[in-house]
Simulated scan of single mutants.
Amino acid sequence: MMEEKVSKNKSKKEFKQTKELMKIARDNGWTQTEIAEKCRTQQSIVSAWFKGTKKATENQLRPLLDEFGHQLRRNTFRVYQNFTEENKLEYFKIEGRIIFNYTIYNIKTIKINGKSIDKYNKNQRIIVHFQGNHQFIFIRQTRKNISEEEILMESHPNYVDALWFSEISCITKIDELIKMATHCTEDLNKKFEIKFLLIEALLNNGFHVDNIKVYPASW
């Protein structure tokens, strides 16, 4: 029953990059008539997709996603880095739009002119990419220590991402994604905050989250 519900929700979910996908198909020589035939719909509906007045579902666009999805993903990516077991740097190009970005801070009290001031230092970051076909990329980043950070800042004064190192995981289940995100900190308040904000981000991006009580509006 749950699988049927998820499948039904997926078939109705709007594909947010419909207009961008139409442009890619057009640039590759596809006409509106050809798109309508492949997607098994009317040319007038395809015209609305091109104009951006309507969005298709992922199921409707499956023939185009199979053909041009790689070009669409190529438009949104970020580069990450990490150390290998041999202590060498390796780099990753992660495609897919970012649906969640959260920074964990630690507080350090310093004294300036005899006054105690709390300084908020970025300690960890949680980033989630969605790549389509039920796949998420979960990235847990840690910041370099002060001495190494100062060296990197001299070399890359404007390149903040050079200061972060990343652990990367592929996840296909939303409950596992939420669980992994909340395990990034031992702070109970931050656990609640991360879980709430991640669920909110998932819902805002059209994903189904279990055990959410919905109060639908009447239009």
Rank of each mutant, 00 (worst) to 15 (best):
K88M: 15
D66C: 01
I127D: 04
I94T: 00
D210F: 13
K16S: 09
K19F: 06
E150R: 05
E149R: 07
Q141G: 03
F136T: 03
L65P: 06
L202R: 00
Y102A: 01
K122I: 08
I151Q: 12
L163V: 05
D175C: 07
N145D: 13
F15S: 03
W164K: 03
S155T: 14
T33R: 12
K119S: 01
S44M: 15
Y159I: 11
R74S: 09
N59Y: 13
I35K: 03
N158A: 07
N59Q: 13
F50W: 07
K19R: 11
I178Y: 13
L64R: 06
A217T: 08
Q71P: 02
H134L: 08
R140W: 06
I110T: 08
K195W: 00
R40V: 04
I99Y: 11
V128T: 08
L202I: 11
A25T: 07
A25E: 09
N113P: 00
F77R: 13
Q81P: 06
E95W: 10
A201F: 12
T185C: 09
G96P: 13
K119G: 02
M1S: 10
L188Y: 12
H129R: 06
N145W: 06
I45E: 03
D161L: 09
K179R: 07
E95S: 01
V79W: 13
R143G: 00
Q135R: 08
F92R: 10
F196A: 04
I117G: 01
P157A: 06
N113Y: 10
I127K: 05
Q141C: 05
K115Y: 14
R125E: 04
V128C: 01
I168L: 14
